[in-house]
Design a protein around this nucleic acid. Structure first.
Lengths: 234, 234
DNA sequence: CGGAGGATTGATTGTTATCAACGGTGGTGG
DNA sequence: CCACCACCGTTGATAACAATCAATCCTCCG
């Protein structure tokens, strides 16, 4: 087990839940938190297992998935740096957590974290707020999954990815081209949008043919016409 | 404004968030809470408006909806007795709230409720837990919306409705027939399941033809073969 | 008894899934 | 260093499912 470095040096210190705690209060977190690295594809927790920990994402990207008994799968949430993992006071893991890319997380054993939360109302408040924000995201995605066409889904997905911080706008004026690398492969995009691999691929090809995007490599995307894409996304 | 009756008499006293509070603590809630009746179809709050209140459902059923700019609509959440309405600390209403049936709610002005929550950690803990539970429900519904067929959706919906308390199992053994009245019309079922009215109607007709259910009236449903329905729901 | 809104049924279209084949690319081992 | 292999992505043909368009039907009201 890798020794936790002080939270003061933490890359997500100012964005994660712990950001509300004072340096003094962080001592408690420091004591119980441990860092852990995950390789792409590695599963952190399986739905239904006893829930032993929660934590924060430091680096990388993870997915939460739900599946039908006959194997159809759906990504029901994504986790990026500063996002919270797990559910305090829950005895069981609700959704399988898997790393989409090489990731690093800060893990807290559930019991100690719960006790810490009880002593620090601000932490609990932040978590409440975080939970409501994630709920709103999930509900917005429900609209997309149920009511938007494949074209709208893919166009909207690309815009979402573009607006993520790690997508560096190349000389980013408000409507200049934006380049970034997708943290998901086609299969994962399909799982996220409720489509098949083939449909995702076809939609991307159409957007490319229409000159709205370029696809320099499998994972690379350049948005050439942000406004046009926004039109298609609805 | 109708005067609040003591929480002690409240119909959801033992199930709602306030159930964790002692009688003494309830005095504070009593002071700020007011009851309000809503007619079926009446809208309590519109998405985007300033959020002035939160509350609890006492009686009836409500929906949370999201819509695309061109008018396609999706129910992203339902609220039944004891469910919490709104989001503390949020400045704006996130999703439009509308009564599905005649309903009664207990309304708390947001500010006073937030202050009350700060003084009662147990209340905040309950809300946190409630928020996570609702989030899990939303995510499970995402799987349904994105990956299940119309038949699976409708069969699953009927089973869900049957397992709601107000659905009185007629002499309910574990697999005897169950009768209940839907709180939703066909259009609302379609909005909930991400289908059209016609598709919902056709699936119900098929289930009836297969002898799995009976449809004694527009809103009435009898499940004749629970196990069979569960097979179709997957 | 008449009307209106909701529900059902039918015909057709359209979108996306499925089945299938091929192409490219990156990694590994010879 | 090159060749081969495996995986991922693309493209094509076809089929299936649900949406759409359209016409009643039913039921609950007034």
């Amino acid at each position: 087990m890798e020794e936790a470095r002080p939270c003061a040096e933490c890359s997500v210190r100012d964005h994660a839940l712990c950001g509300t705690l004072s340096d003094a209060e962080l001592v408690g977190l420091n004591r119980i938190g441990r860092r852990r690295r995950l390789a792409a594809g590695e599963t952190l927790a399986l739905a239904g297992e006893p829930a032993e920990a929660c934590g924060n994402v430091l680096r990388g990207a993870l997915k939460l998935t739900a599946a039908t008994t006959d194997g159809r799968e759906q990504i029901v949430g994504t986790l990026y740096p500063a996002d919270f993992i797990g559910r305090p006071y829950a005895e069981r893991v609700e959704f399988t957590v898997t790393a989409l890319a090489a990731s690093e997380i800060c893990v807290f054993p559930r019991g100690p974290f719960e006790r810490l939360m009880e002593d620090h109302a601000a932490l609990e408040r932040e978590l409440l707020n975080h939970a409501f924000a994630v709920l709103a995201t999930a509900r917005t995605q429900m609209l997309t999954l149920a009511r938007r066409s494949a074209r709208e889904k893919v166009a909207g997905f690309l815009l979402d990815m573009a607006s993520r911080g790690d997508a560096h706008a190349s000389r980013g004026t408000s409507d200049g081209p934006i380049s970034f690398s997708l943290p998901l492969n086609r299969s994962q995009i399909a799982d996220l949008l409720g489509l098949t691999i083939e449909t995702v691929s076809r939609q991307l090809t159409k957007l490319k043919a229409a000159g709205l995007i370029a696809l320099p490599s499998a994972r690379g995307v350049t948005i050439r016409d942000q406004a046009g894409l926004r039109m298609l996304a609805g």
